[in-house]
Design a protein around this nucleic acid. Structure first.
Lengths: 358, 358
DNA sequence: TCATCAATTGTTATCGATATCATATAGTCG
DNA sequence: CGACTATATGATATCGATAACAATTGATGA
């Protein structure tokens, strides 16, 4: 079947670098392989003149360092792993960007995986990552399978859990209380006079941040004596814009007099608002709607959406910073919790005056 | 400065896995390391009974395979690299998802990097990737620095360029003509009676897909005898929702009688529509607006946005499939071009009847 | 002037798994 | 029954860089 002996692909000229090794570069320059190895690192002691000659040879030959060999020997893989629920969510991709930026010039690279909001998939990914011996690992959330926890414990590398405040942290934490953030939003809106609160979120407990927001909502509504919240669960997290639209329809069918609806994220809030608009309801005149996460869309759409701004980028930066610190200080750092900020952003979608804009 | 000899971090119990090796697992079970190695692969010949015993030991000891060692020996790194302009763009994250899905059960992992629409950053990333010896690499677009091209040629691995049809392909291509896709949209809208066309895009040539769309627009408008298009360039790609809003203001100031505006992406189209709405203009009654990319938002927002649907996910899947094919057939595959589909999706934002919905 | 030291380079062993070849054992078949 | 084959396992060399230590050189200073 296979024609192995056919002439090689045209882009592979016979004598090409293909398997060029450090030793060959060394021979070419007339030094030892070790010297070439040193030339690739800034710290090492190589005379400027030698390094220049080596680098010229590297260029001429087209040699590319082989880290997989180096990392075996140095026992440093040169990357850190990060797992996020979804790459298709700008909150998490901002966090990924924060990590990448913090890793600049550290010689560490980011290996990203996404768990699709599933603890099982997370477990698989953790194993896949650990097989490549990352120097540290950043996780989203604090709920992991037992085996995942065991693997992480054994790995002996710094672990940072983000975006939440887990009850039983593995190691370090960089995040905030989703439940308190949502509570703050409820209190703020109650302070503006809203009384009949609805909530739209996903069905299962897969999205732990979602459940925390939900419970923060529920608890606060009750504390304020505003009766039980009107909760609609719609679909498996992450709930989409479209599901947000469907959810608000159900919610309003069941509780037509709802005054304000809080959504587990801006995306569902946006879907809900659009669906209302489409049905001839004015937001916030007929109903107020708020989201969570402060996605770009919320400051652009019409009406602009009230939300909780979360420091997504900062979470990434700080998580990476904690990791770097742990690595530098010889892994002797204890477990710490770094709180990141959040704030209510009041916008048109919950404006008591009703007229979103002139 | 550092206290290297302090007691180790509490979470690392002395006897822990830390440096558990395959040889130790082998000794524990009473077989050779080679047999343990085989047990980890399905294809290898190990008796079911031995494999079971080994896997139990692996579990009991908490051993995790070390791929960095294995890949040095087997000369297979077990991953493929993909570079996208931005992870924070759902078009590209759909492509990334397509790649990941296609890689399921192949033993290959995806290593993702983002270039931020910069050829220099791409070059850096290509080098960083090649240092880890990926078995293949997927790029976005066809414009690369000379050094990047040289490195890729020398690497001797399959390369897939995506999302475009480069004039001078490196190896394989999976994509479509952005210029023709945009041309199709212009023709479709012209067919509906629109005559005065505007265009909103980014300023520089950094985003080659953007420039191609622009030139497809320009060319077609002229071909149809609709005068030169009214082009507004706004900001460095990727242009944001907000910039879309600013751009349409400029465009309408300059050419108030414009009938329809095409945007380089749905995101800028959305921003433009919201800005119009905010200023009391009705879309499409007062002005029609269309986007490119068929992002989720475009089917949800109000009015829904006319756009070009691109098979983002399919691009990823097929790019990975081409790569896998090349790897299986002993890298002897020639350069091929795989065309992916696109289609015009007509929605409310360009509806000639003007009334988006009841 | 000779010991000492810093700077630079070389030598050798090694990281941990796997390719490759060798070997043992059991089953098959004319 | 002997040769042959398939299956299961082991022994050893090796992948390509780097750690660790050794060696060389020239400079410095008492």
């Amino acid at each position: 079947m296979k024609n192995e002996d056919e002439p090689k692909d045209k882009r592979l000229k016979p004598g090409d670098a293909q398997k060029l090794t450090m030793a060959e570069v060394a021979k070419y320059v007339g030094v030892s392989a070790m010297t070439v190895s040193r030339a690739f690192r800034q710290d090492a002691s190589v005379s400027e003149e030698t390094r220049k000659r080596i680098m010229e040879a590297v260029d001429a030959l087209g040699y590319v360092l082989d880290l997989s060999a180096g990392s075996l020997s140095s026992r440093r893989s040169g990357f850190i792993a990060a797992l996020v629920p979804s790459i298709n969510n700008s909150n998490f991709s901002d966090t990924a960007r924060g990590i990448t930026d913090a890793l600049q010039n550290t010689g560490l690279q980011l290996l990203l995986g996404y768990t699709d909001y599933s603890a099982e998939k997370e477990e698989e990914l953790i194993e896949a990552m650990l097989r490549r011996r990352p120097e540290g690992i950043i996780l989203t959330g604090g709920s992991h399978t037992a085996r995942a926890r065991r693997m992480l414990a054994k790995a002996g590398i710094p672990v940072v859990e983000t975006w939440e405040l887990p009850e039983d942290p593995i190691n370090q934490v960089v995040g905030f209380s989703n439940s308190e953030a949502m509570a703050l939003l409820v209190r703020t809106l109650a302070g503006q006079g809203y009384r009949k609160f609805g909530y739209i979120g996903g069905t299962t407990a897969r999205d732990t941040r979602g459940s925390q927001r939900r419970s923060g909502f529920q608890k606060t509504v009750e504390e304020l004596g505003l009766g039980p919240g009107r909760m609609i669960s719609f679909g498996v997290p992450p709930i989409t814009m479209e599901q947000g639209g469907q959810a608000i329809v159900s919610l309003l069918e069941r509780w037509p007099d709802t005054e304000v609806v809080l959504c587990v994220s801006d995306l569902s809030a946006f879907g809900a608002i659009m669906e209302c608009t489409r049905r001839g309801m004015k937001v916030p005149r007929d109903i107020a709607i708020a989201g969570f996460g402060d996605y770009e869309i919320s400051s652009i759409c019409h009406p602009r959406i009230t939300t909780i701004n979360v420091d997504c980028y900062g979470i990434g930066r700080q998580a990476a910073a904690r990791l770097l610190h742990a690595l530098q200080s010889g892994e002797a750092t204890g477990d710490e919790i770094t709180l990141t900020g959040y704030k209510v952003v009041l916008r048109e979608s919950t404006d008591r005056n009703g007229a979103p804009t002139a």
